[in-house]
């Protein structure tokens, strides 16, 4: 659907060259929600603005739906942009227009007749859940409502792609969630490809299918969200995963438990994908004569099922514990690790 080949953007400033985007290659599939995460200055915002040429690339090619964006003349580019919706961190609504008029703006640009415009605007207002606020001005709306207007406006001309430039970074956590749910909803309903830029890993976790991690203008790691969460390779990725999963600073508590526990075994259970839905703990303790004591853990949901880690203490007769462990390893997709020594 979208393919990016050797894309670079170099900013020149007083004889200094800054490579904001450095020889970037990426393929994004039709209908997926693709996340790009990185710290500020990583080049992710520049990258997304290259996609509709709000910034002119220094070199490289961009194809969207087989159309080479990078070779379009300015007239053709204007037409192509109507099929690439974009939403912004600071919403960028026209304060002089009402909600309705803001949403109608891209339709005016596309030269759509007044009757059709009004009909389409009403559909969009219903879609993003702003019914009753049609005639309000942006200054009368909350941040979340403003972003809903932004989304409705970006969708007005039925784009093939939606670019989200830090779309939730100015919103509080609760509003962020409702906007993310709206994006997932739109993605499912319209089969719209969404490219989402963020510095928050929980945004990626909640809605993305695949993710690319950017650092210094380069994609340093990419893959399915679940894989990246499970086995982050780069230091920067590990840091992002810690944002959501927490880090191992609580190990001391487990170390102490291990030191104090004379009976049973301490186990680390790694859940990946759908397996989290099984009632594993109760199943094991019912099947085998063991007590399972949950020490610590965190399970989180992604678009492709849940994943997380649980530390448990299993008490019972030695052989039975052995059998229970064998069962977990052989019969479920949960990965098991016996912790003998302090971590």
């Amino acid at each position: 659907m979208i393919s990016i080949e050797g894309l670079s953007k170099i900013f020149k400033q007083d004889n200094k060259q800054l490579k904001a985007v450095d020889n970037l290659n990426l393929k994004i599939n039709q209908g997926e929600i693709y996340g790009i995460i990185g710290y500020s200055g990583a080049g992710k915002s520049t990258f997304v603005r290259l996609l509709n040429r709000l910034e002119e690339p220094s070199s490289g090619k961009i194809f969207i739906d087989k159309q080479e964006i990078t070779s379009l003349k300015s007239n053709e580019l204007r037409l192509a942009r109507r099929e690439i919706g974009m939403i912004f961190q600071h919403f960028n609504l026209l304060w002089s227009r009402t909600v309705k008029e803001n949403i109608a703006f891209p339709l005016e640009i596309a030269g759509i007749s007044k009757d059709k415009r009004e009909k389409r605007v009403q559909e969009l207002i219903d879609l993003v859940g702003l019914s009753g606020r049609e005639n309000a001005y942006p200054s009368q709306l909350s941040g979340g409502q403003k972003q809903r207007v932004g989304i409705a406006r970006a969708l007005a001309n039925k784009p093939k792609v939606l670019l989200c430039d830090e779309a939730t970074s100015a919103l509080d956590p609760e509003t962020t969630n409702s906007i993310l749910e709206l994006l997932v909803d739109i993605n499912a309903k319209m089969k719209l490809t969404i490219i989402l830029i963020t510095h928050e890993m929980h945004v990626i976790r909640k809605i993305c299918n695949r993710v690319a991690v950017m650092e210094n203008g380069k994609v340093v790691e990419q893959g399915d969200v679940l894989d990246v969460f499970q086995k982050p390779q780069q230091a920067v990725t590990k840091k992002f995963v810690e944002q959501v999963m927490g880090n191992d600073e609580d190990n001391e508590m487990i170390n102490q438990l291990i030191a104090n526990s004379t009976t049973g075994k301490i186990l680390r259970l790694q859940f990946i994908g759908e397996s989290t839905n099984q009632a594993l703990i109760s199943e094991v303790s019912r099947k085998f004569n063991v007590d399972i004591n949950i020490l610590q853990g965190k399970i989180t949901q992604t678009q492709h099922g849940a994943f997380g880690t649980l530390y448990v203490q299993m008490n019972g007769e030695k052989e039975v514990i052995e059998q229970a462990c064998q069962f977990i390893v052989n019969e479920t997709s949960v990965e098991l690790e016996v912790i003998e020594n302090a971590i």
Binding site: R78, R81, R82, I84, M86, F88, N92, P106, I109
Partner: peptide, 22 residues
């Protein structure tokens, strides 16, 4: 707001539209 001008550009607005409508 430069962002609003940018938003208009991202919608494929002509310069004329940007002047008179933004």
């Amino acid at each position: 707001d430069k962002g609003v001008v940018e938003a208009a550009k991202s919608m494929g607005a002509k310069t004329k539209t940007i002047i008179f409508k933004v």
